[in-house]
Each structure stands twice: as structure tokens, then as C-alpha cells.
Computed example of a mutant assay.
Amino acid sequence: MKLAFYGSSLLSSYWNGAATYYRGVLSQLARHGHDITFYEPDAFERQQHRDIDPPAYAKVQVYDASPEACARVLAEAAAADIVVKASGVGVYDDELLEGVIDRSAPHALKVYWDVDAAATLEELAGAPDHPLRRRLPEFDLVLTYGGGPPVIRQYEAFGARRCVPIYNALDPATHHPVAPEPRFASDLAFLANRLPDREARVEEFFLRAAARLPDKRFLLGGNGWQGKGMPGNVSAIGHVGTADHNAFNCTPQAVLNVARDSMANIGFSPATRVFEAAGAAACLITDAWEGIELFLKPDSEVLVARDGQDVADLLEALTPERARSIGQAALARVLAEHTYERRGVEADRILRDELAAKRELVAA
């Protein structure tokens, strides 16, 4: 079964939080017999910051960020059984959207795969003429990497035929416990790119906690934080490639997850970082959001904070023994219930069922 996937980047996680998700889901779909071609633009210096080689589970076509190159790769959609337009490609998103709908074969399953549903839905709500809002009913299926019932209801209200979350998960082959590395030693580490709709929450949950605990060490990884005022006990180390994520998660006493505003408001949206940390048996502290208990049990598998004072209080009370206990419990939970192997089974079943129904409809 030929699957054409138009996304941001499979080869690079640089300014590309969806990379881990793409890799996890698509590698499993390949195991279920899907012949995958991933189309990614040469944009945002991602090709200069690749962190994996082209994988065996997908053919990767990198195209120039130009209208001509975009049109060339869209022409290949006609040969696919399943054609996916992912959200947030970053260049020519509208052209890719229109092209996937217009150039796919009549019998092909057309899928919009949203890797940031909260932000997409917020954008659609404020733009009645948005290309996705206009053409959403022409997609056969919407898949999202989070959001739960609130996202399903909103997508259906905008005209989606069917919306199903395929949540983030763990690939234990890539994210797992490793030996600590001294360069990541800290009491609390946080890994995230600097984004406008998360900055105030980072200031509250991370920087405020650091200011309240001047004797503890805080580590900040991710792009864009240069020039940001921080307490003296915070070390900002810039981009951390996926090859270093395990050590980044294993070394500190605890790691922090902070959702963006839109994801926190809509709930049911665990970031890839949640599962990466749990897979490394890290003691995770997360900001509070609805639905966390579907993935990790508060107090025994994850610690939940309502604000920066909560983060500081949790850190002060945290012993190495309790941190290890929480990390091991989180690892056991995600290995049992939240692996990409499980997500792949689910995604494969949905795609095959929807494709069969589409072909019956076209043949009728």
C-alpha cells in the first residue's frame, strides 16, 4: 500500500517537534506493509541539522522550498493509495493542502494529520476563509497526535468527516535508560524550543521555580533562549539533538514538561517529551492539564504542578529514592500501554478500514 506523506521533516528535529512522532508512527506503519514516501522541504536549516540518516522504513524526498519543487512532489500524490498532508510543514502549507486534495487519485484516502491540533483549531476559529476550514470536508479522515474529545468535537464542527487521535508514544528502541552524563547534571532539566505561546508558562513553571530555589541547579535545553533573562542558577545549553535526549532525561534528578497555552487549555495533549522522559525512567514533573491520568498516574508515575511554587515545593521534597521510584513506574506504564508499536496497530487499522470504505464508495 503506497503512502505519500507531506510533512515538516523526518530527518531533522531542528525546530521540528514532530520528528519523534513521525518516526515512531511511520516506522510502525512500514512494519504493517505500507510503502512510505516522506516529502520534506529544504527549509529552516533542518537539512544542515539532520539527526538521523534516511531510514529504511521510508523513502525521503527533500525538495527545494520553491513553488516549482512543491508542484513536482505534489504530482506524485496521484500514484499513492493514501495521501497525507501534515500540519505545520512551514512552507507552502496552503499549496500542499490544495494539491493533496486536487491531485490525489479518486480512490485514494486523503488524510489531514494534525501534529498540533490545539494551535490549528485556534487558527481556524479566527479565520472563516482559512484554506483548511474551506476544504476540510474534502478530506476523508483527520488524525491528530492529541486532543481527545474536545479536539474531535471541534474538528467535526468544522466539517471533518471523522477525527481520531493517534497519541504520542514511546519508541523503546530510541528512547530508553542510559548512563548519566555530567554535562546534564542538574536538579531540574527542561527541554523545549522558545515559542510565543509557551513563554509565559516557562517563566512561571521553570524560571520562577529556579528563582525560588537558588541553591539548586536548573538546565534549559532548546532553541531560541539566547538573550532571555534568567536566574543565575539556570544554564541554557541550546539545541539538544535526539541522540542526546536519553542522557538529558536520565541525568537530572527530575525533568519538567510545560505545555503550550493552547495544548494546556484543550487538554489530552501529552507532548513527545512526556514519553521520551518516561521511556528513560526519568522523574517527570508536568504542568497540570486535563487528561494526564490517561497516560500517567499523578503522584506515583508523574508529579503534577499547578504553578512555579508547586514545582519548587515538589523539588524540595523530592528524594533520590522517590525520584527513581516515580521514573521506574512511569517506564513500566508507557512500555505496557503507550508504545508506538501499539499506536501503529491502531493507525494501520484505521487507515485500512477507511481506505476500504472509500474504495467501495468510489466503485458503487
Score class of each variant (00 low, 15 high):
residue 7 G to P: 09
residue 10 L to P: 03
residue 10 L to Q: 05
residue 15 W to R: 14
residue 18 A to C: 10
residue 19 A to P: 11
residue 20 T to P: 03
residue 22 Y to M: 04
residue 23 R to Q: 14
residue 27 S to N: 10
residue 32 H to V: 07
residue 33 G to C: 01
residue 34 H to S: 10
residue 42 D to W: 04
residue 44 F to N: 12
residue 46 R to C: 08
residue 53 D to R: 14
residue 59 K to P: 00
residue 59 K to L: 03
residue 63 Y to D: 02
residue 66 S to Y: 02
residue 73 V to A: 02
residue 73 V to F: 03
residue 87 S to N: 15
residue 88 G to C: 05
residue 94 D to W: 07
residue 100 V to G: 12
residue 100 V to K: 08
residue 112 Y to C: 10
residue 119 A to G: 02
residue 119 A to I: 06
residue 119 A to C: 02
residue 120 T to N: 15
residue 120 T to S: 15
residue 122 E to K: 10
residue 125 A to N: 05
residue 130 H to T: 15
residue 133 R to S: 12
residue 136 L to S: 14
residue 140 D to P: 08
residue 141 L to V: 11
residue 147 G to V: 13
residue 148 G to Q: 13
residue 149 P to M: 10
residue 150 P to Q: 06
residue 158 F to H: 15
residue 159 G to I: 11
residue 162 R to K: 12
residue 163 C to D: 11
residue 173 A to I: 04
residue 177 P to E: 08
residue 179 A to E: 09
residue 180 P to E: 04
residue 190 F to Y: 12
residue 209 A to Q: 06
residue 212 R to K: 15
residue 214 P to Y: 03
residue 216 K to H: 03
residue 220 L to A: 00
residue 220 L to F: 00
residue 222 G to I: 00
residue 230 M to S: 00
residue 233 N to D: 01
residue 236 A to T: 00
residue 239 H to G: 02
residue 239 H to Q: 07
residue 242 T to N: 14
residue 245 H to L: 14
residue 249 N to V: 02
residue 255 V to K: 04
residue 256 L to Y: 04
residue 261 D to Q: 08
residue 262 S to F: 02
residue 267 G to Q: 12
residue 269 S to F: 14
residue 270 P to V: 14
residue 272 T to E: 07
residue 273 R to A: 11
residue 277 A to N: 08
residue 278 A to W: 04
residue 281 A to K: 06
residue 285 I to W: 06
residue 286 T to Y: 06
residue 298 P to H: 09
residue 320 P to T: 08
residue 329 A to S: 15
residue 342 R to I: 13
residue 350 I to N: 14
residue 352 R to E: 15
residue 355 L to G: 09
residue 359 R to E: 11
residue 361 L to F: 11
residue 361 L to K: 13
residue 362 V to L: 11
residue 364 A to E: 10
